[in-house]
Nucleic acid binder design. Structure first.
Length: 154
DNA sequence: GCCAACGTTGGC
DNA sequence: GCCAACGTTGGC
């Protein structure tokens, strides 16, 4: 079982949107590193920290999990989609995704400031300067710590 | 809206 | 294969 952090802009798709729909194909990822995590490394049931990026405040809003196995992102072949990729052939998909299922919204939103202030989270990739990856692996101890922070009464 | 950081593209 | 130009991300 692995642990991941998924970034999403809440204006586009928030933890509440995921709660409402229950399960969502994580489409639109157009970065090879992030794609490779989904295509090669994720397994059904992996734990996901749901991070709100480009938000005030930014931070971890809750938890989700990987549902099923990776499959091609259909938006890459849809000319009217903003994620359309004219260079991707149907018999050789370039972009893959996994479905993500809602688990819980944290009672306590864990802001980026709080993440940075927590010494136990030293090394968390998302906190590294210049890191823009929308999907990153998370160490188990970091995952456990952030979950505890999110569930704590403030 | 600004801008630092980083990924991608394309000419050579 | 190099690298300048360009586009995107994401915090502020």
């Amino acid at each position: 079982m692995r642990y991941w952090l998924f970034k999403s802009e809440p204006d586009v798709f928030s933890i509440r949107d995921l709660k409402r729909v229950g399960r969502e194909p994580w489409n639109g990822v157009r970065n090879y590193q992030a794609r490779n995590f989904m295509m090669k490394d994720m397994r059904d049931g992996d734990a996901v920290l749901f991070y709100h990026s480009n938000a005030r405040p930014a931070g971890v809003a809750g938890m989700a999990k990987v549902k099923g196995e990776a499959y091609p992102d259909k938006t890459q072949w849809n000319p009217s989609s903003e994620y359309f990729d004219p260079k991707s052939a149907e018999d050789k998909p370039r972009w893959w995704l996994v479905d993500v299922e809602f688990v819980e919204e944290f009672p306590h939103f864990v802001s980026l400031d709080e993440l940075r202030a927590e010494p136990a989270l030293e090394g968390l990739l998302t906190l590294r300067k210049g890191n823009r990856l929308s999907i990153t692996p998370v160490e188990r101890v970091h995952y456990e710590r952030i979950r505890a922070m999110g569930r704590a009464r403030k």
